[in-house]
Write a protein that binds this DNA or RNA. Structure first.
Ligand code: FES
Ligand code: FES
Lengths: 152, 152
DNA sequence: ATTATTCCTATAAATTTATGTTGAAATCCC
DNA sequence: GGGATTTCAACATAAATTTATAGGAATAAT
């Protein structure tokens, strides 16, 4: 249980792809390229990007020469926003965000566990921005290069 | 994304139900009663309890007068164990536990985010035992009672 | 024997994941 | 300006997985 759905995983990778292009000129990126680079069906990406557009995390430009760009700087978009756009909330169980959802809430002890865990996760995801992840990736890449150099 | 599956939610409630009976005599509990008390289909509970039995978190006693009991004291079973029994791992994405799962791992920056988040969650769930949750529930119940008293 | 229970297998329903088809808007090029 | 092209947009459908129900066999108690 407690797996990030493919929507969430693909959504983050989509956003990271847009973010990397944002820093190098911010030209619109077409989904076809993202689909190729990330090896995800373009049709599925089209569905995933809709809620991201609605939540104003990306902007779309139609027609030839169009595509998608981040609506804000990578440093100003955090993972929590992305996940929330893709499913309305990033709580581990629905009763945490919607107190009417579960009628056994008053006596439910499990609720407290899910609530605390959700809080923990949410705080973490709020702190991590796309820029952080890009920097992390850069570092990771460099490290693996160095390792390659010293090996003989 | 990142919802606890029904298997996980029902599984924890099932275990909590067994735990509450464990402390009051540890007689075998029959699934029919759990199903009624928790309002979950008995057929579905039967399926959910199988992996819990395999992982030796519960013991079964067949035949009339049989049922299920916790295999250890509630204070010695934590939430992480339960979730792992129910789906093999409590990591947020499969690449975290199975490094062969995802062939884009070497360059994937998102991976680090999921890994850290998984670690965070796992550490939390490992610290929470069934006994902790029972105590929490007791406290919760008492609090709501007090509140009822002062209201007039 | 009869009853109560877990155990095993099959299948139905619902949801999530993925693909296909067509339409609409913007741009490019002549 | 206008047709061809490129791209997003919207809707429909298929495949896979998760969630839930059903029927009956095996086991033990009375
Ligand atoms: S699971 Fe909803 S309140 Fe317990
Ligand atoms: S999601 Fe598997 S390694 Fe990035």
């Amino acid at each position: 249980m407690i797996k990030v759905s493919t929507k969430g995983r693909y959504g983050l990778r989509l956003m990271l792809n847009l973010a990397s292009h944002y820093n190098s000129g911010n030209k619109a990126v077409i989904l076809k390229n993202v689909a190729q680079e990330e090896d995800i069906s373009i049709r599925y990406l089209e569905q995933i990007i809709i809620p991201l557009k609605i939540k104003k995390l990306v902007k779309s430009i139609r027609g030839a020469g169009g595509g998608y760009t981040l609506a804000r700087k990578p440093a100003e978009i955090n993972v929590c926003e992305i996940l929330e756009a893709l499913e309305g909330t990033c709580a581990l169980v629905d009763c945490v965000e919607d107190t009417d959802y579960c009628d056994r809430l008053p006596g439910c002890a499990a609720y407290e566990v899910w609530r605390e865990a959700s809080q923990l996760l949410q705080n973490f995801f709020k702190k991590v921005t796309l820029q952080h992840i890009l920097d992390l990736g850069e570092k990771k890449l460099q490290k693996s290069k160095e390792k390659g150099k010293t090996r003989r």
